[in-house]
């Protein structure tokens, strides 16, 4: 077991503004560090192979998949998860819109979907349109129409035009 221990390394980074130090296997997924070491269980695993988008978080503002990111590459970076999306006063406009418009059904894809939608709201030029912006986040319940409606509503709420 000693060789196993020796490959562990110490990583410093922040999650939702809080500094964190984790001693871990370096190839442990950021997803598992968030969920197990930090018990922030809002970030979900749907596939483990970078397809479903349920584990989407921000890393230094970039939209990334936490199941595709080993903790050794998070050293010194800032992570934002669903738990840190809104400020303490309430819901992020995307969260509010998903709540109002029925964008969440079973809810398992919702945290990842909301992270991708929030990124799109912030960077509407990052994709050709909403369909592309959310194509990495799969939902099996809604058929996406309520999700489109939610995102449209959030753009309206913050006074941004939704790209065609």
């Amino acid at each position: 077991m000693t060789t196993q221990e020796t490959i562990k390394q110490t990583f410093n980074f922040s999650v939702n503004g809080q500094p964190q130090t984790v001693h871990s296997y370096p190839m442990k997924r950021l997803l598992d560090v968030i969920r197990e070491d930090l018990t922030l269980t809002g970030t979900k695993e749907g596939c483990g192979e970078g397809e479903c988008g349920a584990c989407t978080v921000f890393m230094d503002g970039l939209l990334i998949l936490s199941c595709m990111t080993p903790i050794c590459q998070v050293q010194g970076l800032d992570i934002t998860t669903i738990e840190g999306l809104a400020d303490s006063t309430g819901l992020h406009p995307i969260q509010d819109a998903f709540y109002e418009e029925g964008g969440a059904q079973c809810g398992i894809c919702t945290p990842g979907m909301i992270m991708a939608a929030a990124h799109y709201l912030e960077h509407p030029d990052s994709a050709e349109n909403m369909g592309e912006a959310l194509a990495g986040n799969q939902c099996r319940c809604t058929g996406y129409t309520r999700i489109f409606a939610s995102v449209e509503k959030a753009f309206e709420a913050v006074g941004k035009p939704l790209p065609e």
Binding site: G48, E49, G50, C67, M68, T69, P70, Q73, Q75
Partner: peptide
């Protein structure tokens, strides 16, 4: 190991041989 988007899939599915990774991110 660069962005890891292939290697992490191989690791997830258990087909990546045991090896030492050279983290280019650092």
């Amino acid at each position: 190991l660069a962005g890891g988007t292939d290697i992490m899939v191989y690791m997830d599915t258990g087909v990546f041989p045991a090896s030492t990774l050279l983290n280019l991110y650092s």
